[in-house]
Computed example of a mutant assay.
Amino acid sequence: MSTTATPRFLIDPREFADQRVLVTGETKGAGQAIVRRLSAAGAVTVAVARTALPEGESTPGFFVQADLCTPEGVDTVVRQVQDKVGGIDILVHNLGGSSAPGGGFAMLTEQHWQDELSLNLLAAVRLDRALIPPMLERGRGVVLHISSIQRRLPLPDSTIAYAAAKAALSTYSKALSKELGPRGIRVNSIAPGWIRTTAAEALVKRISEHAGTGEAAARQSIMDALGGIPLGRPAWPEEVAELVAFLASERAASIHGSEYAIDGGTVPTV
Rank of each mutant, 00 (worst) to 15 (best):
Thr6Glu: 14
Pro7Trp: 13
Phe9Cys: 06
Pro13Glu: 12
Asp18Cys: 07
Val21Ser: 04
Thr24Pro: 04
Gly25Glu: 06
Gly25Thr: 08
Gly29Thr: 08
Gly29His: 05
Gly29Arg: 00
Gln32Cys: 08
Ala33Trp: 06
Ile34Trp: 08
Val46Trp: 01
Ala52Gln: 12
Leu53Asn: 05
Leu53Cys: 03
Ser58Trp: 03
Ser58Ala: 13
Gly61Tyr: 02
Leu68Asp: 11
Cys69Gly: 15
Cys69Thr: 15
Pro71His: 00
Glu72Asn: 08
Glu72His: 06
Val78Asp: 03
Arg79Asp: 13
Asp83Arg: 11
Gly97His: 00
Ser99Asp: 14
Ala100Leu: 07
Gly104Pro: 11
Gly104Trp: 08
Phe105Val: 13
Met107Thr: 15
Gln111Tyr: 09
Trp113Leu: 05
Asn120Gln: 09
Asn120Trp: 04
Asp128Ala: 03
Leu131Val: 05
Ile132Thr: 10
Pro133Tyr: 05
Pro134Cys: 01
Leu136Val: 10
Glu137Leu: 01
Glu137Val: 14
Arg138Asp: 05
Arg140Ser: 14
Arg140Gln: 14
Arg151His: 15
Leu153Asn: 08
Leu155Pro: 00
Leu155Ala: 03
Leu155Asn: 13
Lys166Ile: 02
Ala168Tyr: 09
Leu169Met: 07
Thr171Met: 05
Ser173Arg: 05
Arg186Ala: 08
Ser189Ala: 14
Gly193Ser: 09
Arg196Ser: 11
Ala200Val: 08
Ala202Ile: 02
Ala202Trp: 09
Arg206Asn: 04
Glu209Thr: 12
Glu209Lys: 14
His210Asn: 07
Gly212Glu: 09
Ala216Thr: 12
Ala216Leu: 03
Ala217Trp: 01
Ile222Ser: 02
Ala225Cys: 01
Ile229Leu: 09
Arg233Gly: 01
Pro234Lys: 02
Trp236Pro: 01
Trp236Asp: 15
Leu243Ser: 08
Phe246Lys: 03
Ser249Lys: 06
Ser254Ala: 10
Ile255Tyr: 11
Ile255Trp: 11
Glu259Lys: 00
Glu259Trp: 05
Glu259Gln: 13
Thr269Leu: 13
